[in-house]
Write a protein that binds this DNA or RNA. Structure first.
Lengths: 235, 235
DNA sequence: ACGGTTTCTATAACTCGGTTATAGAACCAG
DNA sequence: CTGGTTCTATAACCGAGTTATAGAAACCGT
């Protein structure tokens, strides 16, 4: 029983196993013994590579934000920045809906050992890196907002401030939806998220008609990207 | 419940101690042994009265929502429903800012033993009651929204749907602010929350001028209530 | 290639915290 | 007073993070 695993791989494999088990079995699967057994090493690996479970969980959170950022980066830019914002919102929501456990950990809503209570008091280096990745995801919203302002769709304003408003609305919706409010499945999108997007766009200076058109354009683009109707999808 | 004052007293004192220690020492203070020692009983009290720590934590969450609901109820109603919404938002934010640990637990962002991961899978009766209290807090927003629609300030719309948008925006801001984004102190209010409120009001049908005036009215009312510049608070 | 150092790893023990088993004390009805 | 119910304290159990320690492997300067 002494197969020697590639030392450099163990760290990555622990994080991979953590993410996989997290979505399969929930946050209680994020245990040093379980992860070590899954990877085929002893629990000591957690300490030599991370220093403790807290840093490993932070690394999982960082991976989640990184995944979110990549997802948002995949949205791309069209000549309708407001439609792009709708697409970003849908993508953000979709990412969280597909891996709720992962993002519950990333957003600090699920802390197996009381670790990672709030993002504000970050102790580990991994935690700070995770926060950095979170800001990276935010940057996508800022860029789209800036384009909307430049295109005259939004009133002239500080793009960070306007984007922070959009981020708040989007993040609040996603958080509350993931908590079970707004009902199951996709119904929250049409009932709350889309109207919320139109409300925000109009409030930031867009016209109601243009905002609605952009929402429709984003919906069409979403159908094209996901390849189905977007209405019947269950998760 | 009622006929035995002494026995029930222990139950209440455990919850009180939990809330107090929570804000003093953070979520790691929510331990059966610590709470029992604080109250002066053995850890068995946790099990005879709650059945386990999970139910006790849910009870703390319920107390948090109850407190939030009372806070919001104290806002009252004026003849300017949009200003009332601004006041509700400020109060909601203030409650969370004053007892961040309590509401981190209530919102499920801090789970000492992996308990209370998401609000969606509620197992204990206390957890369901806590969710009920959360909806109670939401009801205040719904009522103010309905009045705003009736007063012609917001476009005719389903009040639940419109209120859910407002709740999303508000909750998102509060969550992100508590996570450390938007900077420390009160600066997030003027930079993000107030503009966000105006954006939402305008997007829901209000005019920019009226929304700004209501924001100012709410700010003035807030100063009157707290007796000062918007700093500090009471409870 | 060699010897020393550093890094990684497994085993096993330790600590802490939730939980349970059990027996005694307090309370209440009759 | 007696019997049953409820609460309580003591003590143990168990799971999970962590640490101590020693051996193995990789690395490196000479």
């Amino acid at each position: 029983m002494s197969p020697k695993p590639r030392a450099t791989d163990v760290k990555d494999r622990l994080v991979e196993a953590a993410i996989r088990l997290l979505d399969e079995s929930g946050p209680e699967a994020l245990q040093a013994r379980k992860l070590a057994a899954e990877v085929g090493v002893s629990t000591m690996a957690v300490y030599t590579h991370f220093g403790g479970m807290a840093a490993l969980v932070d690394e999982v959170a960082r991976a989640g934000f990184l995944r979110l950022s990549e997802w948002l980066a995949g949205v791309g830019e069209t000549d309708d920045p407001v439609a792009d914002i709708f697409s970003l919102a849908r993508t953000y929501r979709q990412a969280v809906a597909e891996q709720p456990q992962l993002f519950a950990v990333a957003f600090g809503q699920s802390a197996p050992g009381g670790k990672r209570a709030t993002l504000s008091d970050l102790t580990t280096a991994e935690g700070r890196e995770a926060a950095q990745e979170g800001l990276e995801a935010f940057a996508h919203i800022v860029r789209a907002t800036e384009r909307a302002i430049r295109a005259g769709r939004f009133r002239p304003a500080d793009e960070y401030q306007a984007a922070a408003q959009l981020w708040s609305a989007l993040h609040g919706f996603v958080t509350l939806e993931a908590s079970g409010h707004f009902g199951p499945g996709e119904q929250g999108i049409d009932h709350i998220l889309l109207p919320l997007g139109i409300t925000m766009a109009v409030g930031l200076g867009d016209t109601v008609d243009q905002a609605r058109a952009s929402a429709e354009a984003a919906k069409a683009a979403w159908r094209a990207r996901t390849g189905n109707t977007g209405q019947g999808g269950n998760d």
